[in-house]
Amino acid sequence: MNSDTRDSFFGKLYELAKADKDIIFISADADTFTLKQFRDNLPEQYISAGVAEQNVVLMAAGLAMGGKKVFIYSIIPFITMRCYEQIKVNICSMNLDVTIVGIGAGYSFSWEGPTHHGVQDLALMRTLPTLSIFNPNDSVSSEQSALQAYTICSPCYVRLDKGIFPKIYNEEDCKIGLKIFSNKNKIKIITTGYTTHLIRDLLNKNNLKEIDIIDLFRVKPINESLLISSLMEGDHIITLEENSKIGGIGSIICELVADNKMTAKIHRFALDDTLLEKYGDRIWLMQQSGLDLNLIISKVKEIIN
């Protein structure tokens, strides 16, 4: 059965927490439906710490120093950017067992406005040593990100989306950190999160089959060897993401290509470095930020011809 990505993540976490009393969950005043069972049935392990993200990160670090496995939760910009320095100094520099769970990847909180958009966090968070980053986009990868974060015992960051999405992952893909849908063409699209679903639909609609799609579930550390071996076979690499063009997976792929002296041409599709001054829905916001998926279709057709 398919389920909302949030329910998959928190359902798994609840299961783990029932079996391991050392799991502590701290909410910075953020909620979601499935958390109710955690709150009601495991009150000793659930801390409601109020709208105080800096303290939430500090406490999480303190609890981890005291032997706990801590998960902290709020909306992406608030639980990453608001308390970035606490994450850097107290979680990452001491390599503590804390998982930061952010809800609202990309424009999933579209109507709440730019304060709630998770489009810059990836660039910031990937500069932090010791931090693993997961960007799940279906029920399986969401559930697996909870399990992997629990197992890893070092700092993790999980970016959650909202809603039910087609299942694309299995457990094995999650272990290797990415999903290679096919690996036979000279055009490769590297994408992550919500845009993976969008581009798959669009390529299908346009009956474009001469393209390989790769979805990155684990954004840091990326599975370099697998990615390199796949990208080595490509002439054109298209990167697509619902993140700022600065520092996201487009940047990661450029770095990888440059560092490994690959010769493929790279075409980056991401959000422009501009301010959003008006409200709108998710797709409208992407277009306002220069991310129009139809442009990718044109680009693909141009390359093929």
Partner: peptide, 10 residues
């Protein structure tokens, strides 16, 4: 102080 709160809770 925040770290101390976490350790004290632990």
């Amino acid at each position: 102080i925040g770290l101390s709160c976490g350790l004290a809770l632990a």
